[in-house]
Design a protein around this nucleic acid. Structure first.
Lengths: 362, 362
DNA sequence: GTGAAAGCGCTAACAG
DNA sequence: CTGTTAGCGCTTTCAC
């Protein structure tokens, strides 16, 4: 038996011709069987499959990609962090990609990376992906000139942000964070707080700006005074630092933090300063991290529909890949999912102590 | 100018021959330049690079892979969860892979997935990767027969577990969790606790078993009584449930939880039951999640060196890929990094209340 | 230092 | 329903 061998003597991987020979058909027929093409009799199909099985045949993807011009893979650009939001989105994307039959290639961007998103997209393009997902982008520090004239010929899906650039097709998904932030703020207002402070995320992140916008919109809609914003960096440590400042201000009775980690740090600082949560100060987080229900006090927060967003976004991306000429599928706005736990309550009624009774509303 | 065009009229991507023509050299020379091969004069090199730049040339990876038999990519099998450990490891792997110049393909396994790791490895093999990383594996439910005779010809790196199978080359990295667990337990013992309870992770995970082993070893080494183990599922919710049980037992003065989330849930349950942490019960976690320092009380825990483990593992994997015949590089044992915060203290000295004074130490 | 020729293993037309 | 003929854009081998 003539068997091709590698230079180290190991037998080389079987090719479709080998299968064809063994099955007594043409190579093209093997190809047909493996691509689930019609017009192959069941008998032949079975024979081919058996031969393939016997040889341990596996299609060569490089050859497939070269011949067809498609790699059947989707690239994703993520932040190189294990932060709950980005990590959850990545998992959601992986799950969604698998359902589509594409393979997933991942590139991280590192905060402060000179090349940033562009470098990542470039490397994905080098790898030859059929579509790109950009997850939770942040702005470039030196905006503008940095954005080299990358010509992106494949469809791009941007998650959680407005499309940052021009490409053949740009899809956006996962908006609605502003609405969620607004709901969080209104929950606090509804409890009777005169206004709500905001512990924002780093403003270079679209996600952080969205939440800030939602908070602002809620205050504006209710004609409330907008206190100065404190900016954190998503970490519990930054929440703690902010909490020290906020604790010193007796006017503060309600805070909306842009994520749960900061909310947790914030609560710790308030507690250490002798301001009880929620009796003295109410706190709302964002994300609904797994421990949110078990910290002290259990955190009122907003849950983000990462999986749904990823799934819908990918469906639309794959549609754009496979139907380049067709109109893109429409996006939907995710539902708001506010989870009320024990970190929020009506404000202490000290302001009304001079009055007769203690009505809480407004 | 004759320009190849796609069927939609868009001009097709330039190939190396196009660059060669423009630069007035042979196609092979272009190839040489892009592969940084020697024996190309500087003048020619420059000319080629300029031509490539002008055309916007980008190497076709599929063709490269087909011709060379190498895809220059590494596949990683991860758990489909945003749990801090797995997610951190994945990020570490991405970073490490990028440094090696390989591309990253990601496949998740879903808990309870019938195909499990094998399906994931299979799909990676289909994609044609040069090496595989299996991160934090868990056992298959139906062990044994499930492990189909996949012939894995590429090197495999298993992170955080003993190699679960036979392949051309199998490397292990990221062990030492048992030592870390042992250190955590001994910290508690050193504080004077008579024994230490263990809130274990799901025992299908190697990581959980490692930690259990370390705890057990510590107790044995000090001749302490080994209380029954409670098993959680890594979640704060399961920690909370365990905490309710543990809180009812006055014998419990120290608990080592297999991860921080469970420790946080546990603390909440203890607190709700009126058992103060750390005055009545000490708790140690595992992972050092970002919020660990800011929960109440700040958590004593063990920090895992995800990045270092990923980096070292990948260096060894790449070595195995590129030097198939050579001996694998040796693994090192990561250092133990116990972070002592406020959730641990000497035991309450109720047992000594009958005695004269209340010395704490052992 | 450089180039010519020959595939890598598959898919894409088209022909029967 | 099945087979034939050409490439896809590179790397490889060997020649100059």
């Amino acid at each position: 038996m003539t068997r091709r061998t590698g230079r180290d003597g190991s037998s080389a991987a079987p090719r479709s011709v080998d299968v064809a020979r063994l099955a007594g058909v043409s190579q093209k027929t093997v190809s047909r069987v493996f691509n689930d093409e019609p017009y192959v009799s069941d008998a032949v199909r079975r024979r081919v499959l058996e031969a393939a099985e016997e040889l341990g045949y596996r299609r060569n993807n490089a050859a497939r990609a070269l011949a067809s011009g498609r790699t059947r893979s989707i690239g994703v650009v993520t932040l190189g962090t294990a932060l709950f939001g980005p990590a959850s989105l990545l998992m959601g994307i992986e799950r969604a990609v698998r359902d589509t039959g594409y393979a997933l290639r991942v590139v991280n961007t590192v905060e402060g990376d000179p090349d940033g998103i562009w470098g990542a997209v470039d490397s994905l393009l080098d790898q030859g992906v059929d579509g790109i997902v950009i997850s939770e982008p942040i702005d470039e520090p030196g905006d503008g000139g940095n954005q080299r004239d990358l010509s992106v010929a494949v469809p791009v899906l941007v998650l959680g942000a407005p499309p940052p650039f021009d490409a053949a097709t740009v899809l956006a998904a996962g908006g609605g964070a502003d609405l969620m932030a607004r709901a969080a703020t209104e929950h606090l207002l509804g409890l009777g707080h005169a206004t709500v402070h905001h512990l924002a995320g780093p403003q270079r992140w679209y996600a952080a700006r969205d939440r800030l916008d939602g908070w602002r919109a809620a205050l504006a809609a209710h004609g409330r005074h907008e206190p100065p914003v404190i900016e954190g960096d998503w970490s519990a440590a930054s929440g703690f630092a902010a909490g020290r400042v906020l604790a010193a201000d007796p006017e503060v009775t309600a805070v909306f933090a842009a994520n749960d980690d900061m909310a947790i740090g914030l609560i710790r600082a308030l507690t250490e300063a002798g301001r009880r949560v929620p009796q003295d100060v109410s706190v709302v987080g964002f994300d609904d991290v797994p421990v949110a229900a078990y910290v002290t006090p259990p955190l009122t927060t907003v849950r983000q529909p990462f999986d749904a967003v990823a799934q819908e976004g990918l469906k639309r991306l794959v549609h754009a890949i496979e139907n380049p000429q067709a109109d893109p599928l429409p996006a939907s706005v995710p539902a708001v999912d506010l989870i009320v736990r024990a970190s929020t309550a009506p404000p202490p009624n000290r302001v009304q102590s001079g009055l007769t009774t203690g009505g809480a509303k407004q």
